[in-house]
Computed example of a mutant assay.
Amino acid sequence: MPMIDVYATAGTFTDKHQLARDLAATLMAIEEVPDIPMFRQNTAAFVHELPAGDLSNVDGASHHVRVQVLTNAGALDRDKQFAVVRRFTDMIADAAADPTLADRTWVLLTEAVPGGWGLAGHAHTNDELIAAARRQIAELQAAAGDR
């Protein structure tokens, strides 16, 4: 289940909650994971506001945004990597109502090692996550068949 962390100077975004929700939904769509509760409830974005002065490049500028995206290993092939970086960059600039922010938005893609994805007190491997998703899909299909 992907985690997204956005770091920006306080006041960069007017609606942080909507940005977080949109980033999470966009990542689910790009990854092409099933639209099931397991993924919907555990794909999340966190918007971290930094006080003025807590962010700087070498020149002293602090009007940058850093987006860290953590996925399970192999979740993003090369085309999906391009899609995440492009769409997240655009979404950040739009949410800040500042088209020039696209040039100052860093998107970092990171993969969790197998077993490096903890949820509900268990360090999951990719195979375990896939098995859990398949179980949930089967349960949802069975429940829909009972109606």
Score class of each variant (00 low, 15 high):
A97R: 13
A93K: 03
E49D: 14
R104F: 03
Y7M: 04
T105H: 08
A24L: 13
H122L: 13
A97N: 15
Y7H: 13
S56M: 08
E49V: 06
I30K: 03
G116E: 05
V33A: 10
F39Q: 02
P114I: 02
E111A: 11
D22L: 01
R147H: 15
R104Y: 07
D103H: 14
G53M: 08
L119H: 12
T9G: 04
S62R: 07
A102Y: 03
R21C: 00
A20L: 06
G115V: 05
H17T: 09
Q68F: 05
D54A: 12
D90E: 15
I130D: 01
G145T: 02
M3D: 11
A144K: 09
Q68P: 01
T100S: 12
L27A: 01
T26Y: 00
A138M: 00
M91H: 00
N57I: 08
A75M: 12
A8D: 07
S56A: 15
A123P: 13
T12Y: 10
A29Y: 03
R134Q: 15
H48I: 09
N57R: 05
V107F: 04
M28W: 03
P37S: 06
A133P: 11
M3E: 08
R104C: 02
D146L: 15
F82M: 12
T100Y: 00
R40F: 05
D90S: 14
A143L: 14
R86P: 02
L129Q: 10
I92N: 06
F39H: 11
D98R: 12
R66I: 15
I30G: 05
F46N: 13
R78D: 15
H17C: 05
G145C: 05
L101S: 12
D146F: 09
D22P: 00
V113F: 10
R87M: 09
F82A: 14
F13E: 01
